[in-house]
């Protein structure tokens, strides 16, 4: 997905309008989000921000309280039977019953979905060093490490020929090497039908997943606080470093600011770069951007 957004046909794989979900102690939304088609979108937010709830609603695991969702340009969430076949979903934990093993998962997935490819599942299991579904000796999920459980979930969902992948925290329990393989698999998934397939995933491992993130939706306290293509967001914000003495002068332009006895650092809008010329500025990484945006949201919430 190296193309710039202007060069690809811009249609949204998912359009969400006024989506809400009410719990006794938490409210999601009202959310308005458009997820561009053909890209990998990260949902970024602190614990309890509403990422998992949003993913569960998108995938039909949890019912919404109100609002509208439009998938692939024409399907609504009333068209679940079509969506179930086109969306590959996996949760962050306990996705399958714990007494299942690779062989059982392959058998069940073949029955449960029309587009599951057993050979591809076998290949993916091999690539993720899980063994084979045809091995005589099979290990149940309950005996696998969290990382291997997640690898199993990823292999099962990628073995389906879907148009949209929705994964909740796929990287959280993976080691760095497996995260790298996951990024590679995302890229292969997207490039297999360039511009037609999309990925949505939530993550806390922002630095590791930056390479595979094209678009980001930042969430805090059940609300979307920022969204956009990564390159656009990196152009919109700057990281500012300066002497502690200049901190007060910079404060009106800073969105967030950390200070110590000698220096300050924070995030500001790039449009204020000229007003902050006495300080050093740089393009933020996704990790810096996320911390800045989420910290600002937290401060606003407190205020």
């Amino acid at each position: 997905m190296a193309e710039k957004k202007g060069e690809v046909k811009m249609e949204n794989v998912l359009e969400i309008k006024g989506l809400t979900k009410e719990y006794k102690d938490f409210r999601l939304g009202s959310l308005d989000i458009e997820i561009p088609c053909g890209f990998s979108t990260a949902l970024i937010g602190a614990n309890g921000a509403g990422k998992t709830t949003l993913i569960d609603i998108i995938c039909g695991v949890t019912a919404k309280s109100s609002g509208e969702m439009k998938f692939f340009g024409s399907f609504t969430d009333n068209d679940r039977s079509d969506l179930r076949n086109r969306i590959g979903y996996c949760s962050s934990a306990n996705y399958f019953p714990l007494d299942w093993n690779l062989k059982k998962i392959a058998g069940v997935m073949e029955t449960a979905f029309d587009n599951f490819d057993r050979q591809r599942f076998t290949d993916l299991c091999g690539r993720l060093k899980l063994g084979s579904p045809s091995d005589k000796k099979q290990k149940k999920l309950v005996k696998m490490s969290d990382g291997n459980k997640m690898r199993t979930y990823i292999a099962s969902v990628l073995a389906r020929d879907t148009d949209l992948l929705v994964l909740d925290e796929p990287a959280s329990s993976l080691d760095p090497l497996a995260r790298d393989i996951l990024c590679e698999m995302f890229r292969e998934y997207l490039s297999a039908r360039d511009g037609e397939r999309s990925v949505i995933f939530s993550t806390h491992n922002i630095a590791d997943m930056e390479f595979v993130t094209d678009y980001a939706v930042f969430m805090a306290e059940g609300q979307v606080v920022e969204k956009g293509f990564i390159e656009d967001l990196k152009a919109k914000y700057i990281i500012v470093h300066g002497d502690a003495a200049d901190c007060k002068k910079a404060a009106p332009y800073m969105l967030t600011c950390n200070t110590n006895s000698t220096a300050f650092e924070g995030i500001a809008l790039a449009e204020n770069a000229e007003s902050l010329s006495y300080a050093a500025t740089e393009k933020p990484t996704l990790q810096q951007l996320s911390i800045g945006i989420l910290r600002k949201a937290e401060e606003n919430e407190k205020a």
């Binding site: 996996c90 949760s91 306990n94 399958f96 019953p97």
Partner: peptide, 20 residues
């Protein structure tokens, strides 16, 4: 009791399978 609650192991998977 298998999979009735989505929080239980397999609960979320079973909500997304063919037929719902």
């Amino acid at each position: 009791l298998r999979g009735i609650k989505k929080e239980n192991p397999g609960g979320k998977f079973l909500r997304t399978v063919k037929g719902g």
